[in-house]
Design a protein around this nucleic acid. Sequence first.
DNA 1: TTGCTTACTTACTACTAAGTAAGTATATTG
DNA 2: CAATATACTTACTTAGTAGTAAGTAAGCAA
Lengths: 173, 173
Amino acid sequence: MADRLVRTKGFNAFSYKDIAAPLDVKNAAIHYHFPAKSDLGIGVIDNEITKFAASTAKWKKLPEDEQLVKLFDVFRKHNHAGNICLMGSLATDYETLSPEMQQRVHQMGSSILQWLTNCLEQGRKNKRIHFKGTAEARALMIMSNLQSSLLLSRVLGPAAFKKIAAQLLADLC
Amino acid sequence: MADRLVRTKGFNAFSYKDIAAPLDVKNAAIHYHFPAKSDLGIGVIDNEITKFAASTAKWKKLPEDEQLVKLFDVFRKHNHAGNICLMGSLATDYETLSPEMQQRVHQMGSSILQWLTNCLEQGRKNKRIHFKGTAEARALMIMSNLQSSLLLSRVLGPAAFKKIAAQLLADLC
DNA sequence: TTGCTTACTTACTACTAAGTAAGTATATTG
DNA sequence: CAATATACTTACTTAGTAGTAAGTAAGCAA
């Protein structure tokens, strides 16, 4: 719910009302569960961190190139739903977020980067993924491509994601 | 002024006051020049489109790989200043923007994509730039890498931009 | 000098935001 | 059954937002 709002309108462009009204409750009911808006943001991020950890754990036994495809599929679904990625949305508003939220955003970014770096490193060892340079630089590039492909899709049309994702996978596998 | 605010706080997170106060004028003075906030946004985007056109025209005589480096330098400066790219910032808030602003954001994205696609195409012909796949897909990837590298730099530290930019140039040249 | 334009200020409206305090219905538990 | 916790509602405060209407001071133009 709040997740969807952050991904469509941005953290600073939605209000408690936007969450309360569709649930047919009052404004204050949301304040009961999340006293400050920052608590709402933290909830959204923590939820995402947990979901990401669960997903990657589930993929653990797969070959690295297939794990990569799984990650791409997550973004493909978001593209289809008209959502952008949480990192992308919150990075834009980063300077306006509470220190607690900033810390969580950093944590979320770090864990994605760490997982992706490790995936690429192992994939290269197993000759399933091919790239030049360090695994970390390549992980940063993939993260940034996935993130911005959703942003560009919004502005230039959803084909942008498809073109980027296809080329990215072709380059690596 | 407004440009800087959009690039740091985002379009929905700054107010007329943020522009008026540093100039030591009243709120209404800004409304005199830009009646609605959308007009302010349009002013910022039009300014960027003009600046981009002027820059690329100035680079026209350079070899394509050097034109690419010039583009990277623009982003490098923004990274240094703690700014994110206009496209990135406005794409996040896209759904909340007026139709007029959305149209300008689209126009800005299209012209950057068009220029970059052409630059890559010519660069490949002249054997100065090397890549697989279509020039358009590659242009989208470069755009998205530059865009998100500024976003990730904010969250993960400014080294993120440097790593992405360096690897990207190494891949292409 | 009169009239007109530019670039404001003052003072406001209408609205929306986050957040809170106090009260209430319902369910759970000792 | 009484006490308590949960999940709200009602009604409010405070503070900020975009935007406007009316007035004004300075400069320029015929």
